[in-house]
């Protein structure tokens, strides 16, 4: 329990020191990544739904049945 608290504090401090280094450039990086992740997750979720719907709407055609040629029709 206490180890968990220490770990959380350590992670927080490490995060803070990274974010505040280099004149806070990493804050900008984090913001860009938040936006990027949000848009990508959204695209993929909608896309999966779209693929499923399109499969339902336009089912693949069954392959044409082949008749043996040598039989007289």
């Amino acid at each position: 329990m206490r180890a968990g608290v220490y770990l959380a504090v350590a992670i927080q401090e490490a995060l803070d020191s990274v974010m505040l280094a280099n004149d806070k450039l990493f804050v900008v990086l984090a913001v860009v990544l938040i936006i990027w992740a949000g848009i990508v997750v959204y695209i993929f979720k909608v896309d999966r739904r779209l693929v499923r719907l399109e499969k339902e709407a336009f089912p693949p055609k069954p392959p044409p049945r082949e008749y043996p040629k040598d039989q007289p029709s």
């Binding site: 505040l20 804050v27 984090a30 913001v31 938040i34 936006i35 949000g38 848009i39 959204y42």
Partner: peptide, 20 residues
């Protein structure tokens, strides 16, 4: 889609403000 961008704006704003 507007809700998506609103949530992203809130998240990024909160993150930005935390470090400034």
């Amino acid at each position: 889609v507007a809700i998506l961008f609103g949530v992203l704006g809130l998240l990024t704003g909160s993150y930005w403000a935390h470090y400034t």
